[in-house]
Design a protein around this nucleic acid. Structure first.
Length: 787
RNA sequence: GCCGGAGUGGCGGAACUGGCAGACGCGCGAGACUCAAAAUCUCGUGGUACUUAGUACCGUGUGGGUUCGACCCCCUCCUCCGGCACCA
């Protein structure tokens, strides 16, 4: 565990502690996302069982977390690799199977040769494995289980309304991007050369269809072979075709790759214009998106324009800028991709692009060659993994009954202990005959168990519900308990989960709602994405070898210093560069606070209790007033920072100022009674408690208090104590600072103006000029505008 | 290309709702304590100019605008970070 982890937990803990002090019933849990590849691989490397390796690590991590004083409710601790937990993964799987959300299909999937397993689309980053940045993902045809997250695509988009106030915009944007909704139409172009055949294209710009001068298919389109069959020169074209199918895989290269294609020799008919348009095959058409075929409109699409230019294909202008002059349709000056007004488009000429899209779509539908269609980038979630350390998928395969779900009563399907882990490329569970061979729950005949395990993102998709009811052995959780605690009021995590965990969790919640388990649409009301801890400009990570270990840090400076530093060095949402020098400053501060109390411990302990609601202004000294004023002013801002902004760095800076103020009062018996000093110090200690709990606890005891500081309420802000009797008013001339005057509180505008004009320097500067205007902002400034 | 975010001293960063730019900390400089050092404490520390106390001017990526007044609002451009990307 390194300081990157610690920062995350410190932010959550500071908030949890603060809210407890404010009297809230805070559920602040911790658990272990314990299944998964890294544990399995590490165990293989060390020749020990993944379970043992995992348990050792959990024990180690727990020790560190406890040492740092994170206020977790350990009675709710869960571990996803425990059968008591993962049986409910299996239970959810069965519910999804019943509802047709889970299905099995053989398809092209992402295979990471290093992970030796299939990956979800969300786990592929620019064609590379999310864990192995240097390993390209391969395509494999494998039968596996999918979850129909696509059924929820629209809900996942629409329900963002519910959370947009509490989630960072960039996370929502990333999810929106990922779902990739795009509305358009699917249009059928007949191919008269091949009777009965037709090509469907997907377009978001049906309004440009009169400008379609060709149809372009992806090289993988199923019709290509048929089209080429019998065409003169087919042999040469087949060669071309094969070449195009060897596409570049890297995303960055795809985007900039030269557009290449060939004419098939066949034609299709534009159902709107009746034009005969050539059918091409080209490398820039994606097989997986839309229908794998497009209508090419060079005058109004960047890519089609490039392609048409290269192969000298005709172009036809059919949209013109709404305000622009008409350009003859055959004289294309350049590509125009904006909306405008339809032009040279038969009966649609003159309509706005938007109107044309609507009318053409309805007409296409009425005439039977097209319909409105929405496509998504989002694909179903492939959850099968050909690895050991995960949740077994609860189905069996029977020769008679085919795919049979394991009955609820037989859950959990236990993960067997003895398997061979290094069977590269196939599921390790298959090496355990005791596991594989079973009887069919339906017919009682011999059957084989599914040997894949679930993606570990399944485990993390619902764990936060389990925290509310962690020991339930009748159900994943009790509905009533969930109604009390969920949704999660505040979630804290890294941006890395923006489209993996956070999307899956939203999907899971919607599914749970649909089967009547919960009544909410969204799991996390507020999401906070904290920045990373970096060293040398890059995120701390074991693999990079730039970590500052939590324990090492604690040995050298103490846990509270580490906590203080991670909150003070930068606002929590920003990345933070680790600095050995800067942490020294935090260490110094902690010692300074300790000395402040320790040096006068005896006197403070013996000081009488002080009730600041009964503070007697008349009898108080200036120093006493100053101390309490500073303390309450600090309290006001620290409270609001903890409440809404979470700018702990600013809060801590203010608390440092308060400490400086207290030090400036030395020696303390001059001017302020021990009771007032004690009260000020108490407030200081309480404000620090969420950040440096150990220090605060210790000092609280030194002051003579019994019982833990965790149960002490957050101090109450008192306006009358924070109140300034005098204000510094700034005087500006033409908006520039020219002087300051000290005035009594509550001085009216007229008096303020008088005082400003009475100022010697102001008089001097005004001399010989005319005053155009005077702006007075009470309690703040007087601005005199001169000419 | 599209979407999101950010540009403030030597550094991390403050500045709440348009009202003293640079809080607080680091670093640096000077001093106190000390035989000396460490620790601690005190003072100073955006830039330029002028002889000092000080005064003036400049200063929040660029150029413009709104305003009595702009780090903050609007427009332009630049740079950096993150996401998506021949998505039709």
């Amino acid at each position: 565990m390194h300081m990157g982890h610690m920062r995350n937990y410190t932010i959550g803990d500071a908030i949890a502690r603060y809210r407890r002090m404010r009297g809230f019933n805070v559920l602040h849990p911790m658990g272990w996302d314990a299944f998964g590849l890294p544990a399995e691989n590490a165990a293989i490397d060390r020749g020990i069982h993944p379970r043992l390796w995992t348990l050792q690590n959990v024990a180690e991590f727990k020790k560190v977390l406890q040492r740092f004083g994170f206020s977790y409710d350990w009675s709710r601790e869960i571990s996803t690799c425990a059968p008591e937990y993962y049986r409910w993964n299996q239970w959810f799987f069965l519910r999804m199977l019943e509802r047709g959300i889970a299905y099995r299909k053989k398809s092209r999937v992402n295979w990471c040769p290093r992970c030796q397993t299939v990956l979800a689309n969300e786990q592929v980053v620019n064609g590379f494995c999310w864990r192995h940045e240097d390993t390209q993902v391969e395509a494999r045809e494998i039968a596996q289980w999918f979850w129909k997250i696509t059924d929820y695509a629209d809900q996942l988009l629409d329900d963002m309304k519910e959370i947009e106030a509490g989630w960072p915009e960039r996370v929502l944007a990333m999810q929106r991007n990922w779902i990739g909704k795009s509305q358009g139409a699917r249009i059928r172009f007949a191919v008269p050369d091949l009777l009965g055949e037709s090509i469907e294209v997907f377009t978001t710009r049906i309004d440009t269809i009169y400008g379609a001068t060709s149809i372009v298919l992806s090289p993988e389109h199923p019709l290509v072979g048929k089209l080429l069959d019998g065409v003169p020169g087919a042999a040469g074209l087949e060669k071309e075709w094969n070449r195009l199918r060897q596409r570049v895989k890297k995303t960055e290269e795809i985007a900039t790759a030269e557009k290449e294609g060939f004419f098939t020799g066949r034609f299709a008919v534009n159902p709107f214009s009746g034009d005969r348009v050539p059918i091409w095959v080209a490398n820039f058409i994606l097989a997986e998106y839309g229908t794998g075929a497009v209508m090419s409109v060079p005058a109004h699409d960047e890519r089609d324009f490039d392609f048409a230019k290269k192969y000298r294909l005709p172009m036809r202008v059919v949209v013109q800028p709404a305000s622009g002059n008409a350009i003859p349709g055959d004289q294309v000056r350049g590509v125009y991709t904006e909306d405008g007004r339809s032009f040279d488009s038969g009966e649609y000429t003159g309509l706005t692009s938007e109107q044309a899209r609507a009318k053409m779509t309805t007409d296409a539908e009425a005439r039977g060659f097209g319909k409105a269609q929405t496509t998504y980038r989002l694909k179903d979630w492939g959850i099968s993994r050909q690895r050991y350390w995960g949740t077994p998928i609860p189905v069996v395969y029977c020769a008679n009954c085919k795919v049979v779900p394991v009955p609820d009563s037989e859950l959990p399907v236990l993960l067997p202990d003895s398997v061979q882990l290094i069977e590269a490329g196939q599921s390790p569970l298959a090496t355990s005959p005791e596991f594989v061979n079973t009887t069919c729950p339906k017919c009682g005949g011999p059957a084989r168990r599914e040997t894949d395990t679930m993606d570990t993102f399944v485990d993390s998709s619902w764990y936060y519900y389990r925290y509310a009811d962690p020991h339930n052995d009748k159900a994943p959780f009790d509905k009533e308990i969930i109604r009390h605690w969920l949704p999660v009021d505040q979630y804290v995590g890294g941006i890395t989960h923006a489209i993996l965990h956070l999307l899956y969790s939203r999907f899971f919640t919607k599914f749970m709602r649909d089967i009547g388990l919960v009544k909410i649409n969204e799991p996390f009301t507020r999401l906070f994405t904290q920045g990373m801890v970096q060293k040398g400009g890059v995120a701390m990570s074991k693999s990079r070898g730039n970590v500052v270990g939590a324990i090492e840090m604690a040995e050298q400076y103490g846990c509270d210093t580490g906590r203080l530093y991670t909150l003070f060095a930068a606002p929590p949402e920003k990345d933070l560069e680790w600095s050995d020098q800067a942490i020294e400053g935090c260490s110094r501060f902690i010692h300074r606070v300790y000395r402040l109390v320790d040096a006068q411990a005896e006197r403070l302990r013996n000081a009488p209790a002080f009730d600041d609601s009964k503070f007697d202004f008349a009898k108080a000294s200036e120093k006493e007033k100053a101390l309490l004023r500073k303390a309450h002013q600090t309290l006001k801002r620290v409270t609001s920072d903890f409440e809404v902004r979470w700018h702990f760095n600013a809060s801590i800076a203010l608390i440092m100022e308060l400490v400086n103020e207290l030090h400036a009062q030395e020696p303390l018996d001059q001017g302020a009674s021990p009771a007032v000093v004690k009260r000020t110090i108490e407030m200081l200690i309480l404000m620090l408690a969420p950040v440096t709990p150990h220090l605060s606890e210790e000092l609280w005891e030194i002051l003579g208090h019994k019982g833990g500081i965790l149960d002490v309420p957050w101090p109450e802000y008192r306006e009358e104590l924070a109140h300034e009797e005098q204000h510094e008013i700034i005087i500006q001339i033409n908006g520039k600072l020219r002087g300051k005057i000290l005035v009594d509180d509550g001085l009216g505008e007229t008096e303020l103006k008088e005082r400003a004009f009475a100022d010697e320097r102001v008089k001097h500067m005004i001399d010989g000029k005319s005053v155009v205007k005077t702006v007075v902002v009470p309690q703040k400034l007087v601005n005199i505008v001169l000419r």
